[in-house]
Design a protein around this nucleic acid. Structure first.
Lengths: 228, 228
DNA sequence: TCTAAAGCAAGAGCAGTGCTCTTTTTTGTG
DNA sequence: CACAAAAAAGAGCACTGCTCTTGCTTTAGA
């Protein structure tokens, strides 16, 4: 059952990988909206209908690319977190943020695929959730570690938001206090606001020294979330 | 020259408006990627090729819609700023933020059009810049007013970023000190990070009470930018 | 008032898209 | 080797944006 049907399955996996690779190339060249099954097939020297043996629809292909993108970004974040090691929490946070930004700048179309406007009529299936969570988990880890040492300031939390924050903490990080969970999620969203603005051209004619500006903004983000 | 050629021009303007309206309806229903000239033409009972008399290409139609969207968002922000009147700077800021969020939630596709992933191969022409700036100008106004009273805290600014911040301030708000300009732009980007995350589904299964969470996050944003 | 110019709609057609269906070819295995 | 399962091919459908040509209608100037 393993090596017996292996030959066929191996071939299938190889073709699947080749399709994804070609699609990714085309994604990088033209963007998600112009990803065409026919062009992918053309590049691989097969007929367009043959692709449907491997991906039941264009959306399924997109889903596969989305998962890969989430995973790649998550891996980059994890690597940065690991490299930062035992540095001060705020520096760990900044390191992860810069990894996210760097990955986004080197893979703009894949970033747009996962953090840009959702493709209309396309709802990301549950399959993408674990991959999507990886980057968030890294961020959670930074805050968790900060709480071990004295690297986390007290944070205000209005009575109004307390129930939601408690629910949120129970959901994503039961060992973190509600106010920390809330601050973290906010910082997470704001980080991607910075990256998206830079990537999507909103900083054109506004920010020149993007690198330094990002570092500055992200430092503020970290402090605002209680890290030091 | 005014009323003489008026009949033709008037008809032309009316048709142009009708096209934009139909396109906007379709945009709201299906999203930018599925905006089809043929469908718009069908809705108006004209033939598709006739549309090209009014908009030289699909992109030009999109540009018109983009400008309208920027203007609508800017108007919403201005209205909120005006309604907030002489309130505390932090409250003015929050009011504008909530107006942005509300507009985005009621016009998701138009929001995605202007703050989502850029359409590949399509570069927003210079024409969109003034409209795009309106919301930013409102935000600048909040900070400017805050500086009249005692509503603005001192902000840190690393020596590293000082030149960029000075350049930035000179560019967008010469009467504001560099550190304020930098903080404002960062807050601006982060605001849209919050809105985009909510709108693009990144908060699904994460944040329940979006309204309150947004208020909390945006309050933190304001304080982080020195408002009080 | 008559005519020439400008404006506009229509239609045909090109090259491309996702997707489905049927037929043919390949291929690993009993 | 023969056979059944898997893969590929091909034709075709209903779309898309866009271009070009052909006529008709309105308008403006002589």
């Amino acid at each position: 059952m393993t090596t017996a049907q292996g030959a066929r399955e191996r071939a299938r996996n190889e073709v699947t990988a080749a399709i994804k690779e070609a699609a990714r190339r085309q994604l990088a060249a033209e963007g998600a909206a112009k990803l065409s099954l026919r062009a992918v097939a053309r590049e691989l020297g097969m007929v367009s209908s043959a692709l449907y043996r491997y991906f039941p629809s264009r959306d399924e292909l997109l889903t596969a690319l989305i998962i890969d993108a989430y995973d790649a970004l998550g891996a980059a974040a994890e690597k940065a977190r690991h490299a930062a090691g035992e540095a001060a929490p705020v520096d760990c946070f900044i390191a992860v943020c810069e990894a996210v930004r760097t990955w986004a700048l080197t893979h703009p179309h894949e970033y747009a695929l996962i953090y840009g406007s959702p493709v209309p009529g396309y709802a990301a299936p549950e399959t993408t959730v674990p991959a999507a969570a990886r980057t968030g988990v890294v961020l959670i880890g930074v805050f968790r570690d900060a709480r071990q040492g004295p690297g986390l300031d007290e944070l205000p939390l209005s009575a109004e938001l307390r129930p939601e924050a408690a629910r949120l903490a129970a959901e994503i990080a039961p060992d973190l206090p509600p106010e920390v969970a809330a601050a973290m999620v906010a910082a997470w969203a704001q980080l991607f606001g910075l990256v998206s603005f830079e990537l999507f051209g909103q900083f054109n004619n506004v920010i020149e020294d993007r690198e330094r500006f990002f570092r500055h903004a992200v430092t503020g983000l970290a402090r605002g979330a209680g890290l030091r």
